[in-house]
Amino acid sequence: MLELQNVRKQFDGKVVLDGIDLTIADGEIVSMLGQSGSGKTTLLNIILGLTPPDSGAIIYNGRDITRVSMKERGFNIVFQDYALFPNLNAYKNIVYGLKNKPGLLSPAELDGIIDFLELRPHLTKSVDQLSGGQKQRVALARTLATKPSILLLDEPLSALDGVIKETIKARIKALTKKYNLTCIIVTHDPEEALTMSDRVLIIDQGKVSQFGTPRQVIHQPENSFIEEFILRQLRIKRDNIFQLFEGCHV
C-alpha cells in the first residue's frame, strides 16, 4: 500500500535519513521507534507531505506521490500536543475539518465516531475542561472525521500515564481495525511500539536498524544497538522482555 524507496534527507549538510526502504501493508499498524534525533519524525513528515525528500520515491497504491502535496495525499495526523483549538468546544473541534468538505461524512458516520470514542458526554466542554485522555480522543475523532487513508500519530501517548495510557492504546488498536486504517506511529518508547504494532521500524542515525514484528525484535535483534536500546529503556533482562508483552501483536 505504502512504499518508500531509498528515501534520503539532509539538513544543513547533515544527513538525517539515509536510504530508507520501507513497505507498509493496507491496515497495518507500524511504529517508528528511535532515540531523539534518529530521524523518525523527519520520516513521518516526509510521509505526511510536510517535508520533501532530497531523493528517493514515495509510492502509494502504485502511484508516485513524492511531489504530491500534503492536502492531495489524503493522509492525516494527530500531533503530540493534540493541536486542538482552545476557542472551540470538543464538538466544534471534531467537525472543524469538515467545513470545506460538505458531504464527506454523513451524520450517522459522525455519530459513529463520537460514540466509538465515547465522547458524547464531553461534546459541549471547552478544551481546558477536558482531561488528557479526552483531548487525545477528540483529536482522534477530528482526524477520523476527515476519512484519512493513512493515520499518522506523533508520540500519541507521551502526555498520558497509567490507566488512561492503556485505554488510549486499546482505542488506537480498535479503531484501526474498525475503520481498516493503516496507522503509522512515531514513538521513542519501546514498550509502546512493541505492544501496539504489527511491525516495528527501528531507526538509528537515519538508517533502518531493523524492521520486523515485535517477536522478531525481541527474540531476533539484528544488531547490538537494538538489544541495548530496548534493554536500557525497559531495564529488565532480555529473557524476560517477551513476558512483558503478552497479548501484543506477535
Rank of each mutant, 00 (worst) to 15 (best):
E246W: 11
S149E: 14
L44Q: 03
M32R: 00
I203V: 12
I58F: 05
I236S: 10
L160Y: 02
I20M: 07
D26C: 12
K101E: 14
A108L: 07
G62I: 04
I94K: 03
S149K: 14
T124H: 15
Y179W: 13
D189N: 13
L123Q: 04
I20C: 04
S31N: 01
S158F: 02
T143S: 11
G132K: 03
V186W: 08
N45H: 06
T213G: 03
A145D: 04
G74W: 05
E246K: 14
D204N: 15
K165Q: 06
L194A: 03
L160R: 03
K9N: 07
L117H: 01
N6S: 12
P86W: 03
S38A: 12
T187R: 06
A25K: 15
L234E: 03
V138A: 06
R235C: 10
E192K: 09
G132P: 04
N89L: 08
D154N: 13
L44R: 05
A90T: 07
N180R: 13
F79N: 07
G247H: 02
I164A: 13
F85T: 12
S38V: 02
A159H: 10
I218G: 05
K207F: 00
L50K: 07
T42P: 02
S31I: 03
I59S: 04
E192Q: 12
K40H: 08
I113A: 05
I184Y: 06
K165V: 10
D154R: 08
L110V: 12
D12M: 07
E155V: 13
F245R: 05
K135Y: 06
H249Q: 14
I226S: 04
A57I: 09
R232A: 14
G97Q: 05
P148F: 00
E28F: 10
L123H: 07
N89V: 04
T213C: 07
I59M: 11
A139C: 11
V208M: 01
E155G: 11
I58D: 00
G112Y: 01
E72G: 04
I47M: 00
K125A: 09
L22W: 08
Y96I: 12
I241V: 15
Y96C: 10
A145C: 05
K237L: 13
K92S: 10
L152T: 05
E191Y: 14
P148E: 06
P107Q: 09
D18K: 01
P190F: 04
A141D: 00
A57E: 10
E118L: 11
T182E: 02
A141P: 05
N223W: 09
N223D: 12
V30A: 01
G34P: 07
Q243M: 12
K40D: 00
L119D: 01
G37R: 09
F75A: 08
E3Q: 14
L22N: 10
L105A: 10
T146W: 00
L33P: 05
I168Q: 00
R137G: 03
D54S: 01
K40W: 09
V78Y: 02
P52S: 02
K207C: 06
S131Y: 10
R215W: 13
T213Y: 11
E109K: 12
D54H: 03
K101I: 09
N100Q: 14
P148H: 00
